[in-house]
Computed example of a mutant assay.
Amino acid sequence: MDFSLLKGVLESKSYGKIADICDELMLQVAAQGIAFQDEWPYAIHLLGHIYVNDVNSARFLWKTIPSAIKETKPEVIGAWTIGQRLWTRDYAGVYEAIRGFEWSPEAQGLVSAFSDLYTKRMFELLLSAYSTITVSDTALFLGMNEEDATNYAVQHGWNFHPSSRMLTVKRQPTVTEQKLDPSKLQRLTEYVFHLEH
């Protein structure tokens, strides 16, 4: 089986493409009737779906993985543990699952990139959901200790109040760009002209 395309994507750190490439390869191999269970990169495939935040596809893939693979490939279980935590919205558990396994060199870069991406997603979630939040809750959501979470938030413009151990969220100004459609402007001009005359 030729995994050169997948290896190239991993080496170039184009992690957002992994799930699609693995899905396509799996369909091609299945269409040819080739048995691929033992050599299939199930952990990378699961992590690829998790990276693009497609937990439903990861769940479906998990259900199709043979029991023998689940019993003999701990990294597959490690990848699925992340998926389970995402599915149940166990935010701190996601970080525990990431740190709780010693990933292979092939998976390490992908897991690390997912961890960074997940931290950014959680920070955006906090940004949209809170005006103030405790340092301990921030640390829980970001998978950091309290000092690192405070530093991370302050670096992103939030204010820290040491006496209350609270962070005040600094919302980024939203810039909405309106596109001017010349045909709509023309119709509006004609309508206003019609009303005035």
Rank of each mutant, 00 (worst) to 15 (best):
D23N: 12
D137T: 09
Y118R: 14
K17R: 15
F123Y: 13
L27R: 11
E24C: 03
G16S: 12
W87E: 14
Q37H: 06
A113P: 05
Q108A: 09
Q32S: 11
W87I: 01
A129Q: 15
L110G: 07
V52R: 08
G16L: 07
V55T: 14
V111S: 05
A30K: 08
R85D: 15
L125D: 06
Y130C: 06
A97Y: 15
L61N: 11
G78S: 13
G33E: 00
L142Q: 04
L25S: 14
T88Q: 13
V55W: 00
K63V: 09
A129N: 14
H49W: 14
A92P: 09
A92C: 07
L86F: 06
A139Y: 13
A68T: 08
F36S: 10
T119Y: 03
S115R: 07
E124G: 11
A129S: 15
L47V: 03
D90Y: 07
T81P: 04
Y91H: 10
A30E: 09
S67G: 10
S131A: 09
A58N: 08
V135W: 04
S112H: 03
R89H: 14
A113Q: 04
Q32M: 14
T138R: 03
M122V: 04
G48A: 03
Y118E: 15
V135I: 12
N53E: 14
S104R: 03
N56W: 13
P66V: 09
W40G: 03
S136Q: 06
S14V: 04
R121L: 13
D23E: 13
L46V: 02
I50F: 01
